[in-house]
Nucleic acid binder design. Sequence first.
RNA 1: GGAGGGCUAGCCCUAACUGGUAAGGCAGUGGACUUGAAAUCCACCGGGGCGCAAGCCCCUUGGGGGUUCGAAUCCCUCGCCCUCCGCCA
Length: 432
Amino acid sequence: MLDLRLIREQPEVVERALATRGGGARALIGRLLAVDAERRRVLREAEDLKAQRNRASEAIGQAKRRGDDASAEVARMREVGDRIKVLDAELKSGDEEIDRLLLQLPNLPHPSVPVGESAAENVEVRRWGTPRAFAFPARTHDELGEALGLLDFERATKIAKSRFTVLWAEAARLERALTQFMLDLHTREHGYTELWVPHFVNGQTMVGTGQLPKFEEQLFKTVEPDDNRTLYLIPTAEVPVTALHGGEILAESSLPRRYVAFTPCYRREAGTYGQDTKGMIRQHQFDKVELVKVTTPAQSYDELESMVQNAEEVLRRLEIPYRVVALSTGDMSPNSAKTYDIEVWLPGQAKYREISSCSNCEAFQARGLDLRFRPAGGGKTDFCHTLNGSGLAVGRTLIAVLENYQEADGTVTIPKALHPYMNGVERLTARC
RNA sequence: GGAGGGCUAGCCCUAACUGGUAAGGCAGUGGACUUGAAAUCCACCGGGGCGCAAGCCCCUUGGGGGUUCGAAUCCCUCGCCCUCCGCCA
């Protein structure tokens, strides 16, 4: 969430910054300012009365110890207490409304982010590799995978529903090899600490990381007799890993923290009917190796650049062409202050498609999680910055391998970088 | 699932009468002292409101509610952790 004080002190700055991020920020800010002003008026009155009561109670205690009669003062304080109760109730509802409003506002974009309404205004930052020239019509991964008997969409639909996939034999091994390869790269060469985390988290974690209430309809959740015990399946490892240090005050000397976690991701994909219905581009369950950093404000933009580089390195080692795109204000997710997408070349679609999204959320999540650090020189604590990025989405990487390394006969060559992980298999051929 | 114990600052430890208004140690950071270090001393090391400032005030004992002039303390409720029993990969 945004800093209420910033909205209070510079509402026009916030409003201007959010102009192209959708969601009617103007009206929300107006309402926030009104509720906040009233809340502070009530707060002052309540605090004055509490100060009175504290003094009077002290005096009553002393009087009683002396054996004096204090009944008049007690009666007066009873009325003050009743008034305090009313004011405290008003404060509580004001706080709740402020929270509700704050949770609807997106993050402020960094000044370097291209201003725009949609993906049309995204800016390509760089390209790597040259798409291979095929001497035959390039097939899509689902055509290739089904023909080889390695990707099974029909049976996945039978046992679950659409947007699920069964991987057979060497395709399942390839998924595992890619995962292992990515984790090894990031832990051994990029300095990340590997974490293994819960796939279910509580509501507080979802709110703190900015998933709720905005993305309620995208989340799978458990059915519990008692609503506040509901657990949510993680839509990305970003959620548990970013929330890991919530409520903690970290030593500045321990920052930046660099974490990598492999988990499946579970998403309802509501409202995406008709998009990417063929193949395994968009699934209810997909594997992802996720990079998360917790940094000081001063470090976060350098760390964003290196995180993108770390994610890109996966595709460089696999020798698959890609490009890096800076998302425009209108295309970024609400948590983010700045996002780079990595888009991998898919010959079957003859398009670059998203395979990683790396974001600096600055203090937006840290504020909700109460994630702070203590400056090395002592003094006041401040909120950390949090970053997250896919390093990479494993299923989409598998797709990219299939499509980029396909041969005329429909088989698929395994990239050299994966050979140590494939138990001698160097080519995917039809399953017998 | 059953029984019991617990939750106080910074991922530590520890107080507070038959309810009287909460906190000491340690660690950390900066400073003083020192050739350097240790030891010692001082300050800071939760959140918020008002104020130009100095400062004043409020809140913070797992969360929420109740009783009371006043709650860490009494009552209700929820959560989490630990121990034992049962079951179990």
